[in-house]
């Protein structure tokens, strides 16, 4: 949260400096900011509605069951799939992961969840495709997914 303030401070400092140097360029920057925001807005809003529905249907109990201890490799796959599909901000995901660990989930499952959550974004794929095109976006996500499984296995051995 504090980092959000830092971002605002940076944006404000940037804007002030920019305004001081060149009024027209600043206007253009704000116009561009709005345009690139409006450009992603339709996908963005759709994603938020999908997340809302998915999380309302999937209860925390279901998630806990899927990621729980003794879930083995299936649990790793399940955890990584949940991580890949959902979009949970870190400050929610980390305490959730910690709570799961405390209630007996394995490090392997948790790593699979955390790693794929960070690197793979299935619901945000439409946005990614807008920047990178279909092929690159899919390659990046698939390789990131495979990597999150490998990371989980290594973590399972190490911890």
């Amino acid at each position: 949260m504090t980092f959000t303030y830092v971002l605002y401070a940076l944006a404000l400092i940037g804007l002030t400096l920019s305004l001081f140097k060149d009024k027209n360029k600043t206007k253009m920057a704000l116009k561009k900011a709005w345009k690139s925001f409006e450009n992603i807005l339709p996908q963005f809003l759709s994603i938020l509605v999908i997340i809302g529905i998915v999380f309302a249907v999937l209860s925390p109990e279901t998630i806990t069951m899927l990621l729980g201890s003794n879930s083995g490799f299936l649990g790793v796959i399940g955890a990584s799939l949940i991580g890949a599909i959902t979009l949970i901000p870190g400050f929610v995901a980390f305490p959730l992961a910690a709570a799961l660990l405390n209630s007996g989930a394995g490090y392997m499952q948790i790593t699979a969840f955390v790693a794929s959550l960070m690197m793979v974004g299935i619901v945000t794929l439409p946005l990614e495709i807008k920047t990178f095109g279909k092929k690159a976006a899919i390659i990046r996500n698939v390789s990131a997914y495979v990597f999150s499984l490998i990371a989980a296995l290594i973590m399972g051995v190490l911890l």
Binding site: T4, L7, Y8, L10, A11, L12, G14, L15, S18, K25, T26, M28, A29, L30, K31, K32, A33, W34, S36, F37, F44, L48, V49, I51, G52, F55, A56, P89
Partner: peptide, 27 residues
Amino acid sequence: DITKRNVIEMMLVIPPIFVLLGLLDVW
């Protein structure tokens, strides 16, 4: 309720990112 919370959260984070983006683009 979840969508509402997410929208509020995103709307808080997103403006400075895009302002910085616009400045980056121009300068």
